[in-house]
Design a protein around this nucleic acid. Structure first.
Length: 323
DNA sequence: CATCAGGGCCCTG
DNA sequence: CAGGGCCCTGAT
């Protein structure tokens, strides 16, 4: 375990309006041991340019005059350039330059979306991890229950990640892309990831061989990004939609609905019983009303639902996810 | 106890 | 383009 010291404090200004908790905590994401949250504060590990860092991101503003304080913990002092590049990366990953005006203008009077936009004014999608890390999470999500996904990610981190202690927290930091090249298939399977071991290995290989470049892909259009991601072994139509929105901020990327999501959309868009879901085609037709912000619209609805569920458990959702 | 599906994807025919 | 197989685990 590495004990980190506070090496820098920076103040970062997001665009207004900004909803801190709605952006920094996503109750629908399963708890992963690289992060923790309480209202107004998020703790997060981050591997950046070879340094395993601890970040404490704090709300020090108001929705209309937002400000974040970021305490950076590390094992060594960081030069200004490193800190600057880290802050720029956070601006990107957390969508701190997000401009929702057009989206809000179009849909503030939408009967379904309008009230949700009001409640969560300033919320934006955000993922603090890298593309590689997101893909690892995407793989452990596949074809299993949430409970096992949590177990698998924890096992992977405990075997190949690094435990960091900072600001009173102990959290795991991911291993670097290409960090599994010397790990055998059997070793991975021993972590009970099952046949996903193959996908994990092959994605790690692809990064080691520089077949994917997270940063170059940011300058490509959505179709090229989709193509590059689908070329990765283990990434299919469900995972690619998540990556395109959460990692590449494609606010219109939504052309696939998986069975468990179908049940939830049926309930929130048509108020039907999850056991008797609306056909996917019909759901997609409804969601098409929010073009060119299909993914963004759905993100707001989804987060609103899960926050409700977090505050007062919704029985139908509890039975559906049975985590 | 046995069987089965789960917050998919790949591969085959 | 439809369907079988895949690691494991908890639910039934």
């Amino acid at each position: 375990m590495a004990e980190l010291d506070l090496v820098a404090t920076v103040r970062v200004t997001p665009t207004a309006p900004f909803h801190f908790d709605g952006t920094l905590f996503k109750p629908d994401h399963f708890p992963s041991p690289d992060t923790t949250w309480e209202p107004g504060t998020r703790w997060q590990t981050m591997l950046w340019k070879g340094d395993a860092l601890g970040l404490v991101i704090m709300d020090e503003g108001e929705p209309d005059h937002p400000a974040l304080r970021v305490d950076i913990y590390a094992t060594r002092p960081l030069d200004d350039e490193s800190v600057d590049s880290l802050v720029a990366e956070l601006r990107y990953r957390l969508n701190l330059d997000f401009d929702p005006d057009d989206f809000y203008l179009r849909f503030s009077r939408d009967p379904v979306l309008g009230p949700v936009l009001e409640r969560w004014r300033g919320l934006r999608p955000a993922h603090t991890g890298s593309l590689y890390e997101y893909l690892m999470i995407g793989i452990v999500l596949q074809n299993t229950t949430v409970r096992r996904s949590i177990q698998m990610l924890r096992a992977l981190l405990e075997a190949h990640g690094e435990l960091l202690q900072f600001d009173g927290q102990r959290l795991w930091c991911f291993w670097p892309p290409g960090g599994l090249t010397s790990v055998s298939d059997d070793e991975l399977r021993a972590l009970k990831v099952g046949y996903r071991a193959k996908s994990i290995k092959r994605i790690d290989d692809a990064f080691a061989a520089e077949q994917v470049n997270e940063f170059q892909l940011r300058h490509c259009d959505g179709n090229e990004q989709r193509k590059a991601l689908l070329a990765l072994y283990g990434v299919g139509p469900a995972t690619v939609v998540y990556v395109l929105t959460d990692v590449y901020h494609q606010w219109n990327a939504l052309d696939h609905i998986s069975p468990w999501e179908q049940k939830i959309y049926s309930r929130i868009l048509f108020d039907t019983d999850p056991d008797d879901p609306v056909p996917v085609e019909q759901l997609l037709a409804r969601i098409a009303q929010w073009v060119p912000y299909r993914a963004l619209a759905v993100h707001y609805l989804w987060e609103d639902l899960w926050w409700q569920h977090t505050n007062t458990p919704l029985p139908w959702l509890t039975t559906l996810i049975r985590s």
